[in-house]
């Protein structure tokens, strides 16, 4: 019998290239004001951890991609990246 191993999907959602990120810009200028040098850009995004029941990796990836397209990301302005951790 296969033991029950929940699978973790890590989802990073960030603004697409070319979409102005005012929060990232504000953080960037705060870092500069604090004296952190050598920072050329900051982008702020969202990070979600989704725990899934045991399922084949292909199926998990497909499911999480559907979640991103339907609800988690607004694909007009955001892109997403999925990492599965068994």
């Amino acid at each position: 019998m296969v033991p029950f191993h929940p699978m973790l999907a890590k989802v990073h959602i960030t603004l697409k290239n070319g979409v102005l990120d005012p929060q990232g810009k504000a953080i960037h200028s705060a870092l500069n004001q604090l004296g952190f040098e050598g920072v050329s850009n900051v982008n702020l995004g969202k990070y979600l951890e989704i725990t899934l029941d045991t399922m084949p990796e292909m199926e998990a990836k497909k499911k999480v991609r559907e979640m991103c397209e339907k609800l988690l990301a607004n694909t007009v302005i955001e892109s997403y990246q999925i990492t599965l951790v068994p």
Partner: peptide
């Protein structure tokens, strides 16, 4: 309405934060 796709585009955080 924009989230539902009934209207185009998206509404983002104000530029001023």
């Amino acid at each position: 309405l924009v989230e539902s796709g009934l209207l185009p585009g998206a509404l983002m955080r104000n530029r001023s934060q």
